[in-house]
Nucleic acid binder design. Sequence first.
DNA 1: CCTCCACCGGAACGTGAGGAGT
DNA 2: ACTCCTCACGTTCCGGTGGAGG
Length: 394
Amino acid sequence: MRPTYMPEILPHREKEISNLASILAPALKGETPSNVFIYGKTGTGKTAVSKFVGRELLEKGKEMGKKVHFIYINCEVVDTHYRVLQNIANHFIQEWADRIPFTGWPTDEVYSKLKQMMDKDGGVTVIILDEVDKLKGDEALYNLSRINSDLEKARVSVVGISNDLKFTEFLDPRVKSSLGEENMVFYPYNAEQLQDILKQRAELALKPDVLKKEVIPLCAALAAQEHGDARRALDLLRISAELAEREGAKKITERHVRMAQNKIEIDRVTEVIRTLPIHSKLVLASIIIGEEEHKKTGLPSMLTTGEVFDTYRELCKKARVESLTQRRIADLISELDMLGIINARTISKGRYGRTREIQTAISKDEIFKILKEEKDDVLNYIVGYKKRGQARLI
DNA sequence: CCTCCACCGGAACGTGAGGAGT
DNA sequence: ACTCCTCACGTTCCGGTGGAGG
């Protein structure tokens, strides 16, 4: 049930598979397939479909005795011009000693070596560039998009995958037109389709009869709300199963799914908070302190930007950190809002000005727990500060 | 109906870190 | 090792504003 697992059948992606396959099929006749751009949100099967088609292509190629190559590169991992070319070139080099090193060569020399190796081989190569928007600079794309005119015999086709619909807008127009010969959009799965996917995987991964019948529909429905993300659906089912197993339950129930949903959300928030820059954490701490303070004095739990800023400044002073300006803090508050950690909406209090009402969006204790694990000296000080009940700052 | 508070949020600018080229 | 360039992060400055209270 890991998202990396590649099943034999991809439910509800038949159309996409045959579409991509027919675009890439000319490779089997030794001709150049068009370059393709694939768009789609996370968990819509972009990677799975292209890997699937790639595998088929290799098999058919072997069957028909055609020289076909299929190279998959994840640009989040391999994210520079040099490393992309190096990766592709090394695919054609069998001898370990001859491989192109991680670093050291001029980039254009890697490019010439690549061309030389490809021509020596003379086959058709399909290159998948997954998460191509993560690539730094567009030189790699530029090189690959015009490599065919530099090659004698060999042929190259590039499949770019991105979940950013606007990605190509920022590209060099030449690259854009060359890579976008064909475009495909992967639409999100709906709840029923997600159910089919889950059923298929559950059969492979779980013993029979361990699922209560409402489990799969619920996982599917929850994931469908989240723009039909198949990865999310599978995660839900997998974590539900793990939770059920951990508590020694005989069956996976709706309760486990709810727990899994909760766990995923907490994990997400934990990760977000943990990686927040120090001043954002201080702002977050200020909001928690402010809310506690309000509770003590019986005020509603809403805070204003001004209050948060005052508390924040106090914290900075106590912790001997230089404080940022209110303007900047206003932006940090907006960011926390966007991340879903707090809720902030602008309201007018008439005579008493215009401000934002700020409130934590998730449990204060949860946030506090995460901040407490913080290794940062400043935060330690503040957490200790608050714990000793000295949070009398307003 | 007007005023005026306490911010909002846009714009221009400064700065240092890090990547590319040489 | 050097320069140049870009980009994220912040600051400064300031015009704009919804609506309670006069």
